[in-house]
Simulated assay, not measured.
Amino acid sequence: MSDGLADHFLLLALDDEGNHLVGDPALDYGLAGAVLLDLMLAGRIDLAGEQVVVTDATPTGDPVADAALDRVVLEKKPRKPDAWIQPLADWLRGRLLDRQVEAGVLRREQDRVLWVFPRTRYASATGTEPAAETAVRRDLAAALDGDGPVPARTAALLGLVQAVDLARKLFPGRDKKELKARIDAIGKDNWAADAVQQAVARIQALIASMTAVSVATTVITTS
């Protein structure tokens, strides 16, 4: 199993029975944002003004992240981050779920809703919380409870779960306003360089904006 941000985000976004804690398309937006952030923190891409640019085309060793990097490398004209979210979101979930199944972390279950509509769920292979997810939750909780520097990837993941409104579900016993304030503070205070903090914050804000628009559109359509 890979240790990428997108893998961590995926496990957090599913409960042990394979039900989604994050709706569509927010789940896919979050996965795409996680891959972009992983590439950024690995020094492979950066933001030059408003555009995503490749700073190092060397593979990271993660097949999913490297497939995303290849797509950015092959693009002739630089794009803004929002122009990359949807192209990445179109294929990431399937790739990530498949490798979690292959690694024995999740199992693929097929059934029918109301005995008619086919459904595929990805439940924990053991029936309990995967060990990898437990470790990630522990790291996130330690960051929220601590007052020192937070590892960059942990800070980025906290920003993502906040962006798709998942944080309050992961930490239901915490005050919602205090939780948001702490995550915001971590995002501002735990980066080695202002430029990195601004780039990460921009991607997280973009995910939050796209999620909000999709929710509003769904409400209008179903009303």
Rank of each mutant, 00 (worst) to 15 (best):
G4P: 02
A6Y: 00
D7P: 04
F9M: 05
L11T: 03
L12A: 04
D16G: 04
E17C: 07
G18M: 14
G18T: 13
G18S: 09
N19D: 15
L21S: 07
G23S: 12
D24M: 12
P25S: 11
P25M: 10
A26H: 01
G30N: 02
L31V: 10
A32P: 00
G33F: 00
G33L: 03
A34I: 01
L39Q: 05
M40E: 03
G43Y: 04
R44I: 02
A48E: 13
G49M: 11
G49N: 13
Q51D: 14
Q51W: 07
Q51K: 10
V52T: 09
T55S: 12
T58S: 12
P63D: 12
V64E: 04
A65V: 01
D66R: 08
A68Y: 01
D70H: 09
R71K: 12
V72W: 03
L74S: 14
K76P: 06
K77T: 14
P78E: 08
R79K: 14
P81D: 05
A83W: 10
A83Q: 15
A89Y: 03
D90R: 14
L92Q: 04
L97E: 04
R99H: 12
V101A: 05
V101W: 03
E102V: 08
V105F: 08
R108W: 08
D111E: 11
L114F: 15
V116I: 15
F117S: 10
R119K: 13
T120K: 10
T120I: 14
Y122P: 00
Y122I: 07
A123Q: 07
A125N: 07
T126V: 12
T126M: 08
T128Y: 09
E129G: 11
E133G: 08
E133C: 09
T134Q: 14
V136K: 00
R138S: 15
R138T: 14
A142H: 07
A142R: 12
A142V: 09
A143T: 14
D145G: 14
G146P: 02
D147L: 06
G148C: 08
P149A: 15
P149Y: 11
T154Y: 01
A155R: 00
G159F: 00
L160N: 01
L166Y: 05
K169N: 09
K169L: 15
K169H: 13
P172A: 07
D175M: 11
D175K: 07
E178K: 15
K180M: 05
K180W: 04
K180Y: 05
K180F: 04
A181L: 09
I183C: 01
D184E: 13
D189A: 10
N190Q: 05
A193V: 05
A195E: 06
V196Q: 02
Q198V: 11
A199T: 02
A205L: 15
L206R: 00
L206E: 01
S209R: 14
T211V: 11
V213N: 05
V213I: 15
V215Y: 03
A216V: 08
T218K: 13
T218F: 09
I220Q: 11
